[in-house]
Amino acid sequence: MPDDIFSLMRDSIIAGAPDTATYLARKAIAAGTAPLDAINNGYVPGMHDVGEQFARGQMFLPDMMASAEAMRAAMAVLDPELKKLGADRPTSGVVVLGTTKGDIHEIGKILVGTLLTAHGFQVHDLGADISGEKFAAKAQELSADIVGVSALLTTTMRNQKTVIEALERSGIRAQVKVMVGGAPVTRRWAEEIGADGYAKDAMSAVALARELMNQKTGPRTPEPIGSGKVV
């Protein structure tokens, strides 16, 4: 029975079916399955599979968005159960994402968030037009590992620097890695403002986030993009 339900959970993620994912999570809890088992044996392998298929060009972004939605639906059931047990959700790292102050463009950041989620990161998307202080406050609240700052415009790109300054003011800069991206952003700009990394697109943001986590926690066995392993 558990193997069957884990297989169905995996399939619900691959199919991008949030209702099924929710139903299966509730059913598993009712049947006494440990929430961590449901996550590690059912849903995470589903996201793992999705990440691999996307990397191979066999899945497309709308499919992946649907899978991420199904994952969120399952976690909405399982997270409270984990908390009841005093356990934490397994994660590759905690990421706070947002678009800089004055910039309302979200799509690139949403893609990064979706791909990071698919690869086992716990992502908190603050949305667009976010001040440095809000980034810092959320990073502090969640003890974030990484802050990702997006900007689409040359004019708002400058506010990426204000996020780093806000992290410094709040005294958590040393604990948080900062990655920046967006159409006008370059590696040179990232270096100039003191960011820890720059990603040209959503897929390279995943590789970068892993590298930054390695820097934080020490080297691990490298994982290919799409492996989605949750540590």
Partner: peptide, 8 residues
């Protein structure tokens, strides 16, 4: 168009 493989 928005390329559904690359997001470009």
């Amino acid at each position: 168009i928005f390329d559904m493989r690359s997001g470009k």
